[in-house]
């Protein structure tokens, strides 16, 4: 029996291992920029979820006191209860910014989630089976990618009416392809590794190998890419909303609010652009910083 000295020094109780995830978490929280991004994201999320509780007006009622004189009376003020001022019609901008942040975050997160699930399964399957299956599946992705998606998305919104569901579907449809490509590439390099071969030699079936050996080793890449995908989804949604095709009134999104704010900037109501833009930028910065931090934390070799 050969047991090294350090082993014998251990206690008899099963020692908890330090997983690669625990290591990554430690590295992530030591990274200042990533931590800042994380704090920003927590703040923005808390604002979207609980900010409504602080609002004194709902986003849908009109404040008749300021109507018609928005530029003079509708500015940000604690006295009137419009912390961020009102919009062009006299609706409370604070409540609307809360709602817009909710919608934008939801679009981003759901889009990224669809991308993760569909893209990972598709890419891992193509990569693992390889050969002809891989060729057919990836050529299909190439063909889809050649389609001008913004055009299709706008067409969908025009055909089926402006609805948040269509927006989710559209964003989900386009977002998974890049992910599938990345995951496939990673799978190709993973499947040649000996631990996959060991599992195959033992007789573990292909779906189980993908689920148990391939995907857990891809999660780092997926997590990084997903956090960078969320802001892209938010940008797409904002662009669509900016064009006036996004969410339907009285619902709103950050993109729609920025569009309205930009339209009235000439009358001196800078807060109508400023506040939505502030939250928009905070969200994007937060996600990008967190994504960068995750990449550094999960792939320490690549720095």
């Amino acid at each position: 029996m050969v047991a090294t000295a350090e082993q014998t020094a251990e206690q008899a109780a099963p020692a908890a291992g330090r997983s690669l995830w625990a290591d990554a978490r430690r590295r992530f929280f030591r990274n200042r920029a990533a931590l800042l991004g994380f704090v920003i994201l927590v703040f923005v999320t808390a604002f979207a979820l609980f900010g409504g509780a602080l609002a004194q007006w709902s986003g849908e009622e009109l404040d008749y006191a300021v109507m018609g004189q928005v530029a003079e009376l509708g500015g940000p003020s604690l006295a009137t209860g419009h912390y961020f001022g009102t919009d062009d019609l006299g609706r409370d901008l604070y409540a609307r910014t809360v709602q817009g942040t909710q919608i934008s975050l939801a679009v981003g997160v759901i889009g990224a989630l669809i991308a993760c699930v569909v893209g990972t399964l598709y890419g891992a399957t193509a990569g693992y089976f390889g050969g002809r299956t891989d060729s057919v599946m990836m050529r299909l992705v190439d063909i889809f990618m050649a389609v001008p998606y913004m055009f299709i998305l706008i067409l969908l919104l025009v055909m089926y009416g402006r609805s948040i569901t269509i927006l989710f579907i559209g964003v989900g449809l386009i977002s998974w392809m890049e992910m599938a490509r990345i995951v496939r590439g990673q799978t190709l390099s993973l499947k040649g590794r000996e631990f996959v071969e060991a599992a195959r030699a033992t007789g573990v079936s292909a779906p189980v190998i993908i689920a148990r050996h391939i995907v857990p080793n891809l999660l780092g890449v997926i997590a990084v890419y997903a956090t960078l995908l969320v802001p892209l989804m938010i940008l797409t949604e904002s662009f669509i909303s900016f064009l006036g095709l996004g969410v339907q009134e009285p619902m709103t999104s950050l993109g729609a609010l920025i569009s309205e704010g930009a339209g009235t900037i000439a009358y001196g109501t800078t807060w109508q652009l400023g506040f939505p833009l502030l939250f928009f930028c905070l969200t994007l910065f937060g996600f990008f910083f967190v994504g960068d931090g995750l990449r550094d934390a999960l792939d320490p070799k690549d720095r």
């Binding site: 631990f195 189980v208 148990r212």
Partner: peptide, 29 residues
Amino acid sequence: IQMVFQDPLASLNPRMTLGQIIGEPLRTH
């Protein structure tokens, strides 16, 4: 029929604990 591989570290899944790695053939068979 079981196999032992050349590269000791590469033949073990880095995301699994020893218990899961060694237990995998049992789980399969």
